[in-house]
Design a protein around this nucleic acid. Sequence first.
DNA 1: GATGAATGAGACTTCATTCAT
DNA 2: GATGAATGAAGTCTCATTCAT
Lengths: 190, 190, 190, 190
Amino acid sequence: MARARRDPEGRRRAIVEAAVAVILDVGVNNVTHRKVAARAGVPLGATTQYFASLDDLVFAALGDVAKSSDDELAALEADLADSDDVPGVLARYLASYGTDPVRARAQAAFFVANLDNPQVRELTNQWDAGLALVLATHMGEVAVQAVVTYSYGVVLRAARGDTVPGTVELAAVLVRLIGGEMQHTPRPRS
Amino acid sequence: MARARRDPEGRRRAIVEAAVAVILDVGVNNVTHRKVAARAGVPLGATTQYFASLDDLVFAALGDVAKSSDDELAALEADLADSDDVPGVLARYLASYGTDPVRARAQAAFFVANLDNPQVRELTNQWDAGLALVLATHMGEVAVQAVVTYSYGVVLRAARGDTVPGTVELAAVLVRLIGGEMQHTPRPRS
Amino acid sequence: MARARRDPEGRRRAIVEAAVAVILDVGVNNVTHRKVAARAGVPLGATTQYFASLDDLVFAALGDVAKSSDDELAALEADLADSDDVPGVLARYLASYGTDPVRARAQAAFFVANLDNPQVRELTNQWDAGLALVLATHMGEVAVQAVVTYSYGVVLRAARGDTVPGTVELAAVLVRLIGGEMQHTPRPRS
Amino acid sequence: MARARRDPEGRRRAIVEAAVAVILDVGVNNVTHRKVAARAGVPLGATTQYFASLDDLVFAALGDVAKSSDDELAALEADLADSDDVPGVLARYLASYGTDPVRARAQAAFFVANLDNPQVRELTNQWDAGLALVLATHMGEVAVQAVVTYSYGVVLRAARGDTVPGTVELAAVLVRLIGGEMQHTPRPRS
DNA sequence: GATGAATGAGACTTCATTCAT
DNA sequence: GATGAATGAAGTCTCATTCAT
């Protein structure tokens, strides 16, 4: 095979992205060097050159997903601060999982990622901790936990291909879930 | 090795039960003939004698778990029929996952079992379809779906080792979730 | 490839013998599953079926060699008990390494075998401990250690293909080495 | 990485010395470019730049050890010429292996280095040929070979971590070994 | 029918060597 | 000339599956 052009950065990124795709395809526990290498279009050895072990590679891929989640969470936080309609904003956030099954599956991959690995464990906790933090500004503790748990369910069902309720129905459910605990904290106008 | 006493049914059951235990131990993706045979105390050959392939064996094991879920669902149905306190009964049902992580993990194993396999897929759907059916007698459709989704979240978080709310808090959340849709249908006295 | 006839005993023995041959060929640190399998004429997988790890396999091979050494040591012991000529008997024993380089190399393999592995370490010590024990009946402690050390040298040089002195010269050297410490303990006649 | 200061000789020497250290650490059969480069603090490419193959590199390292041995042998030669006490001087020489296991292991590494490679083979022979030459001035041929062989044993046992006799005991053994063949050839006074 | 030995595919990983930069 | 990325062969090991006994 002709030798590839030198491009460590690009190659590393290609491998990580391929790993994410493979995780979505076959599940986090069925990732292999071979599958990732084939998907990335690189020789087998490249995957171990860039990552000391398969665990490291999977960890990097999950980290990539975590990064996207964090970005989305940040967007949610901003949206909540800008709006009076907490349930509505949350509903749109959750509904997006229903319309983007790939993202839902990526998210769900976390929930089932190897919990023995403390590193992964921490990464896994990032999402619900982050979501809880964002929510805490707008509702009481019981509501926060209820919404987080419900969100787990939404993501999981979306990942499984179940029909996810639309924004309107989700908003209705969220209103119930938050109950009287809503506490709007409007963003101060400058 | 001496031939085993002839008891094909017992042997098959032993293998399936061992497979369930192995799934809980190492995850549905790390089951091997050898592990199951060792756990069941049967020779390696027995596992291939009774099941054409490893997939078949895993499928049978998942079916076993599904059966337990069905039984519990039947019990839930009876309890709901006997009681006026729908949220309370449901809360006890869900809380039991928090106190029995093994069962939670068995349940969660379903949610993530290979979704490409249509057979497994169907098995997986059994739980939420069953739960929805049981709930349908007691609340409206929106509430049914909301409760099912929330239950997913509870089971998953329990399986991951997160703290699950106690019965009281769960009941409070369920009351909200069901909202005004509650519709008690007392079991007719004979 | 046509499947081989079933013969676990024979196969295990063939693998061990092949491993011994490979050790002699390439040294104890360069043994690989592939080399052993090729030499034994068995498929690669057979080597791991019979031995849980390569270390186990090498250990078994070294054990095989140790067994031969023990037998020879037992013969030496008997010869010494039967004879008045301790140096002569010893000389013949050592000279045999010169005429059998394969045996010498097998013996030398011990001296350099991985000393980190306690099991191997113990096996390695077996030879000099055994030799020392046999000698102790016939000479003082200083002479015992001197003869053992000298024997190491003889075996090693034989293994390297250096010329080893003949029986007469060896006997002369041994007479010097044992010096006045000789103490013949004739075997009691029955 | 910034280019290294230009000092090809120094770099080559650093690599060789690192290789010697690695040989002592992990054995002559487990040397790798990467280990040597890391130990020497040079980039991986440098090891292939200065040596056409790993074998060449190892050969150079063994040559380095051989050089040290030669130096020691020269010192021994001088000491023997200056002293009347041949066994005593030899005993001190051998005892030093007991107190310096690293050196003993370096020496022993020779004895077991790949004997198929004729180059290495020759290097290996250098030590005993040199020792024999030095001894030949002071004793007869039989004694020379006996002492060389015994020395092999001492070095090997030292390398293996066995207890090596002290100077006094070694001297006693050497006196026996040399027997009546001693022939002091005092260095001519200038 | 029951058993476990036999086989080979494929898993992870290390590394000598080549060669673009 | 110097560097380290790229490649593929080979190493250890695990197993699903087949099939002789």
